[in-house]
Simulated scan of single mutants.
Amino acid sequence: MTKFPDAIDSSKIGTYPAGVWSGGGHFYDEVLEYRVWVYSDDDGEYFCPFENYKSALRFSKKTIGAKDPDVLILQREYVDEPQEGVFVKITSERVAEWRPEWLQNSKREKGSIDRFIAEQNRKNG
């Protein structure tokens, strides 16, 4: 199993809104929480928040109607693609829900977004 980072602030687990951006941005700054969405005929759709991926995965495997874990991330800067092949750096905070595997090699560092956009421009020509 791949090691994913724990949430940045355990005291805030479960306080984030259910409705957030889905995917996008290519880079993340912080992990806020892991979420397991559960679908139940009796209770409808809801999620259970966790501090780490391991706990979320364990819960998802033993809970009827549970999906695989997602991760809630904070992006202080991110990449927008307003049209196919056109990439723009956005400097504004947003919260998004990602697949945990997207965390691999996508932690934003100084210059990450500028390098990414320059590389895409070279590829697209």
Rank of each mutant, 00 (worst) to 15 (best):
D6A: 15
S10P: 00
S11D: 13
I13P: 01
I13C: 07
I13G: 05
T15V: 05
A18F: 13
V20N: 06
W21V: 00
G23S: 09
G24M: 09
H26S: 09
Y28G: 02
D29R: 04
D29Q: 09
V31H: 01
V31Q: 07
L32N: 00
E33D: 06
E33T: 02
E33W: 02
V36M: 05
W37A: 02
W37D: 03
W37E: 07
D41C: 00
D42L: 14
D43E: 15
E45V: 15
Y46W: 11
E51V: 11
L57M: 12
L57A: 09
S60I: 07
T63I: 05
K67A: 14
D68P: 00
D68V: 04
D68Y: 08
V71H: 03
L72V: 07
L72A: 07
I73C: 12
L74A: 09
E77A: 11
V79Y: 05
V79Q: 05
V79T: 08
D80H: 12
E84T: 12
E84A: 12
V88F: 03
I90F: 01
T91F: 00
T91I: 14
S92L: 12
S92W: 07
R94S: 04
R94G: 05
V95F: 10
R99T: 08
P100A: 09
P100K: 07
W102Q: 11
S106N: 12
K107W: 03
K107P: 00
R108W: 03
K110Y: 04
S112L: 10
D114E: 15
F116W: 06
I117K: 04
A118L: 11
A118G: 10
A118H: 07
E119L: 12
Q120P: 04
N121M: 11
R122Q: 13
K123S: 08
K123Y: 09
K123G: 00
N124V: 00
N124R: 14
N124T: 02
G125S: 13
G125F: 06
